[in-house]
């Protein structure tokens, strides 16, 4: 389902144009912060993600320690990538006396919308040493293309 933003409809004279512009500028400001200073965005939902791209692929990396590869569920729906699973490493026996309990256990679910269209059927994922790497090949129309300028 395509959602058309109110302000995107051409026949309306958009009263929110200034707010839209402000939002876009703020977005750009945060974006540049990420790229220029190497700043870290505070993650809000487990797992923390690193997303990067090159010409051909988008890479999504996540730190998911203690969850074996076969227990990580990845699904694609349109432009949204969902990562879910459950961590059960906590022993949780009654007879144990805990000195420290810092590891989290339970279910997790995170969805991100991707910046470009990807070929959902060619997505691959590997989990090595608790780091999940998902490689999403960009759709043909989203790949950058060099256009040759012919001399007249």
């Amino acid at each position: 389902m395509a959602i058309v933003r109110f302000g995107d409809q051409k026949f309306f004279r958009n009263p929110w144009a200034d707010f839209e512009r402000m939002r876009r500028e703020l977005d750009a400001l945060f974006q540049s912060g990420v790229q220029d200073f190497g700043g870290r965005m505070a993650p809000t939902v487990f797992p923390a993600l690193n997303i990067s791209e090159d010409a051909a692929n988008i890479y999504v990396r996540a730190e998911i320690p203690g969850v074996p590869a076969e227990r990580i569920e990845i699904s694609m729906e349109g432009d949204t990538l969902a990562i879910g699973g459950e961590r059960t490493t906590c022993a949780g026996g009654e007879k144990l006396s805990y000195h420290r309990r810092e590891l989290e256990c339970g279910r997790f679910n995170r969805a991100v919308s991707l910046p470009t269209r990807v070929q959902a059927d060619k997505v691959t994922a590997t989990a090595v040493d608790g780091i999940l790497t998902i490689t999403l090949p960009k759709a043909e129309e989203a790949k950058p293309r060099q256009i040759k300028v012919n001399a007249g």
Binding site: G39, S52, E53, Y59
Partner: peptide, 12 residues
Amino acid sequence: PEGETVLLREFE
């Protein structure tokens, strides 16, 4: 990894 543009960075 080299040659990738960072879009989101939540962990290092």
